[in-house]
Amino acid sequence: MDLTQLSSAIAPVNLRSCLIQQQGKLIFEHYRRPQTFRETAKINSCTKSILSSLLCIAMDQGLLPALSTPASAFFPQLASAEDSRKQKITLEHLLTMTAGFSWTEFGGKNSFPHMTRTPDWIAYVLDQPLADEPGTRMEYNSGVSQMLSHILVQVSGMSTADFAEKYLFGPLGINHYEWETDPQGVHTGGFGLKLRPADLMKFGQLYLDKGRWQGEPLISSPLLERSVQPAIAVNDPWRGYYCWHWWADTYPGDDLSDPAASFEYFYARGFGGQFVHVIPKLDMVVVLTHDNRKNSKYPDVFRAFIAPLLIGEPVSDIR
């Protein structure tokens, strides 16, 4: 593995930060500006993976019932919905984004932006029609993430941020963050969290170390490993698989017949270039942050520039 090419390769992308850690040691560090390392910034949908970790902690504590529990146990209006299929939506369907709601996330009537302009986000989400039988298809939906944040508040009796401070942020030494809330005062489950790049690295390292931090267990290893296992294949424009509010993929493709030239990884991803990649085979975590707003034109920096170097291939050239 030779990272000497990396600085020049990623220069045209103008990343906000790029951190690579292997075996617990930082082996590559890039910041657009010197002060970036101490500034918090939006991690967008990487918030979903933070929420996933909090829900795993709640499961470990026995606060959450079995994942086969209907979501109507927390949102009674689902039990009386005109479409009886809504009664079949379970906690696991929410975690894997297979609840079946008709949703377009970034545009249209039933979308994330429209949700945020309503006085009651949960009521808006629950009122959406179903497009699919629950459990059959993944549809990216920040609304179900908000449902999960509300559920965490219900079972813990704490705000999502307070729960994070006590059981995740505090142990990891994450002292600087900002977190948005919905109109009911519940912290956003699918976006809205601001963290520093180094704190995202701590989070990734926790997952690389199977839930342990400085020798202490924060999340049980079996539950953490289950949370990042592929649950359902995704459709274009996505690639790979969705897990419990994490993504999973392989490089360079699904064929792992040549172990020396391929690897599996799982990752958190957020709009505009926020990523936490965890590569267990290489004992490595890669954190990328950016502030790119033209998401459709944003290259996959990890697959184009970093992954090839990890297996000795030439990197892509976008210049």
Rank of each mutant, 00 (worst) to 15 (best):
Ser72Pro: 02
Ser72Ile: 02
Ala73Ser: 09
Phe74Leu: 00
Phe74Ile: 00
Phe74Cys: 00
Phe75Gln: 00
Phe75Ser: 00
Pro76Asp: 00
Pro76Ser: 00
Pro76Lys: 00
Gln77Thr: 01
Leu78Glu: 02
Leu78Gly: 03
Ala79Val: 01
Ser80Asn: 04
Ser80Gln: 05
Ser80Gly: 00
Ala81Gly: 12
Asp83Ser: 05
Ser84Lys: 06
Arg85Ser: 13
Arg85Thr: 09
Gln87Lys: 15
Lys88His: 14
Lys88Ala: 15
Thr90Val: 11
Leu94Tyr: 09
Leu94Pro: 03
Leu95Cys: 07
Thr96Trp: 07
Met97Lys: 07
Gly100His: 12
Trp103Pro: 03
Thr104Leu: 09
Thr104Arg: 11
Thr104Tyr: 08
Glu105Asp: 13
Phe106Pro: 05
Gly108Asp: 03
Gly108Lys: 03
Lys109Arg: 15
Ser111Asn: 10
Ser111Val: 14
Phe112Ala: 15
Phe112His: 15
Phe112Thr: 15
Pro113Met: 13
Pro113Glu: 12
His114Met: 09
Met115Gly: 04
Arg117Asn: 06
Thr118Gly: 01
Thr118Phe: 01
Thr118Tyr: 00
Pro119Phe: 05
Asp120Asn: 09
Trp121Ser: 08
Trp121Lys: 05
Ile122Asn: 01
Ile122Cys: 02
Val125Asn: 00
Asp127Val: 04
Asp127Gly: 12
Gln128Lys: 03
Pro129Phe: 04
Pro129Glu: 08
Asp132Ile: 05
Glu133Ser: 10
Glu133Ile: 15
Pro134Gly: 09
Pro134Ile: 07
Gly135Glu: 10
Gly135Ser: 08
Gly135Arg: 08
Arg137Ile: 15
Met138Leu: 07
Met138Ala: 06
Met138Gln: 11
Glu139Gly: 06
Tyr140Glu: 10
Tyr140Cys: 06
Asn141Phe: 05
Asn141Ile: 12
Gly143Ala: 10
Gly143Ile: 10
Val144Tyr: 12
Val144Phe: 09
Ser149Lys: 01
Ile151Gly: 04
Leu152Gly: 06
Val153Gly: 02
Gln154Tyr: 05
Val155Arg: 08
Ser156Ala: 14
Met158Asp: 14
Met158Arg: 15
Met158Pro: 05
Ala161Asp: 14
Ala161Pro: 02
Asp162Leu: 14
Phe163Leu: 01
Ala164Arg: 01
Ala164Gly: 01
Ala164Glu: 02
Glu165Thr: 09
Lys166Arg: 11
Lys166Ser: 12
Tyr167Phe: 14
Phe169Gln: 01
Gly170Phe: 13
Pro171Ser: 02
Pro171Gly: 02
Pro171Ala: 01
Leu172Asp: 06
Asn175Gln: 14
Asn175Lys: 12
His176Met: 11
Glu178Leu: 12
Trp179Ala: 13
Glu180Gln: 15
Thr181Ala: 05
Thr181Asp: 03
Asp182Gly: 03
Asp182Trp: 01
Asp182Pro: 04
His187Cys: 06
Thr188Ala: 15
Gly190Arg: 08
Gly190Gln: 09
Gly192Pro: 07
Leu193Asn: 02
Leu195Met: 13
Arg196Leu: 12
Arg196Gly: 11
Pro197Asp: 11
Pro197Thr: 09
Ala198Leu: 11
Ala198Gly: 08
Met201His: 03
Met201Tyr: 03
Lys202Pro: 02
Gly204His: 11
Gln205His: 11
Tyr207Arg: 14
